[in-house]
Amino acid sequence: MSVLAQSVGFGLITASVLALAAVGLSLQFGVTNYINFAYGEFLTIGAYLAWTLSHGLHLNVYLALVVATLIMGVLALLLNRFLLRPFTKKGVPLLFLLVVTFGLSLFLSNLTLAIWGPDFQSLDLPREVPHAFGPFLFTTSQLTIIGIAAVAMGALHILLTRTEIGKAMRAMSDSVDLAQISGIDTDRITSFTWLLSGCLAGLAGIVLAINITSFQPNFGGEFLFVIFAAVILGGVGSPYGAMLGALVIGLATEMSAVLINSAYKNDVAFALLILTLLLRPQGIIRMAGKAA
């Protein structure tokens, strides 16, 4: 099996992790129109919750994954309801709202540190067996990650195109005013968006933890700018753009790791982010009515 093919395989795994995270961030940005700088910590918390459930409470690891994902969603919902929504209702300028999420990221990352400590932990799936698919070779956990991402993206697509709440999210992303005029309770949709965004972040954090085998309290925060790269490359606020951006960034970073040097993986993501901002700030998929 060629090294290049394997790097494509790794790229698909990274893209899967990234897609979950990027779509969650992008959806929330689309609906609320501000970036959440504490999003990286959502990933961290998701992973630690899953770790506690499976290691501390000896829950089946798959069950732990589901429960942790849901808890993170609820946490995001509560953070919006009791912290961010009061600020937006007050009409705080964007500049300050961003500082609030920035401060929140410090709070959450240190809360994680206080609760779970600085040691490396790992989240393992049982029965690691290699599986060959044509030129690709995947472990069970890698297949699981790709599977989870594929199912999640499919479910999201159905949510956004088939269900009323998903369509309402897209409608709000187009125009909050018109959504209100149409009788959509925008507060409720915003709450749901935070719930969903939190779930996706939690899930992304869990699969990221599985993928990198060991993690620390700052691993989500450090991954944040790679998520930004995917979101901006795809077009801010567009969930499908985020998926595409995740695929591009995932493949580019993993292939460059093989072709150049694995130490420069992040630099490649960063270079793509900067190039996008300079050359096509609206991203690959431009959303009508969204400011670039």
Binding site: E164, K167, A168, R170, A171, S173, D174, S175, D177, L178, A179, I181, S182, G183, I184, M287, A288, G289
Partner: peptide, 21 residues
């Protein structure tokens, strides 16, 4: 409204569904 009276990224059908939300 006069200016933004449709959701630009939603189909005609979905626009109507939103009207009947």
């Amino acid at each position: 409204p006069q200016v933004i009276n449709v959701f630009p990224n939603l189909s005609v059908f979905e626009n109507l569904e939103m009207g009947g939300y």
